[in-house]
Design a protein around this nucleic acid. Structure first.
Lengths: 174, 174
DNA sequence: GTTGAAAAATACTAACT
DNA sequence: AGTTAGTATTTTTCAAC
């Protein structure tokens, strides 16, 4: 962690894109795709982890196969918009495993929650026993997701084109 | 792929929960936590992958560090609700890397898109050059996410409690 | 200070019990 | 499902630019 790289070169971007695409790729394959040998590739990965560019690694599970048939986006409005109350709601939501995402929206100072449940009944139970009675909750609008057409993890990081990669490879080799 | 396990026992659930939490966990550590030895643990993982419970593995990247400062939830209404038109929109959206998720919502037959961009300008550019001119798009409501308070990947699968795990371990050992 | 190469440790895979 | 042996990968150490 001694060297905090200020800027990512195209090799780093290629590594990050490949790791987001396949989190269990072997280091040698990752190095081969990036055009460098394995040891410096592993050092770059460790550095990227230490620097916080990589937050972790996760298996992507199939929700439907595991019995989670319902995804709901709930828009929650609060009565108080004081910072302490907003943080309090976020802290409470963080303790509920059904809530997978919690985003604070601009303009109307309310939250968008992505909630995953086994079926509609269990979601209703969560709604009435957890979310509705929570402090500061003024209104809830639930939108059921019929089907998920696309579900990409992470960010739209693009692997560098061959030209850029070749240039940085030459720069790192000289 | 010969044995399609019809039901998951608590050991499988423990394995899935651990893999979702840490996708690069070693097989020996995974086996240790599940209470079985490494080879059968790896066989279970392969079976879970073949059966489709595990869709893949991904590195979780930090969007802000990588320059993606904007997350927008766009609610898109279409003019035509014919199945072919819905599928056509989904297919088009699938080609845009900025769109990370696309969910079809119930009731109003429109879509909720999760869009990640570098800044507000690049989002506007995407909006005017890609989404707005797309066929069948009638209206778009954009909601900017100020901050993301919670972002859990996947599903709320719970690791089995020790009692249930001990029972299944005894059953598998006999 | 970073990269490339080689050796030691570890984990994974495939057999058999 | 557990054990053992073979293979491959990761990790560490060292030399070179």
């Amino acid at each position: 962690m001694t060297s905090q790289r200020v800027k990512l070169d195209s090799i780093d971007r290629k590594i990050l894109a490949d790791l987001q695409d396949d989190g269990r790729i072997t280091n040698v394959e990752l190095a081969r795709r990036a055009g460098i040998s394995a040891p410096p590739c592993l050092r770059r990965v460790r550095a990227l982890e230490e620097a916080g560019f990589i937050r972790g690694y996760h298996a992507e599970l199939d929700g439907v196969s595991l019995g989670f048939h319902v995804t709901v986006f709930a828009q929650v409005g609060l009565t108080s918009q004081a910072d302490a109350d907003l943080r309090g709601f976020e802290s409470l939501v963080a303790t509920w495993p059904e809530v997978r995402e919690c985003h604070m929206l601009a303009g109307e100072t309310d939250f968008l929650l992505k909630i995953v449940a086994e079926d509609w009944d269990s979601y209703q139970k969560f709604l009435t026993s957890r979310l509705t009675p929570a402090p500061n909750v003024a209104q809830i609008k639930s939108a059921l997701a019929i089907r998920t057409a696309k579900l990409c993890p992470g960010v739209p990081i693009l692997p560098p084109d061959d030209e850029e990669l070749a240039r940085d490879l030459e720069a790192s080799g000289s």
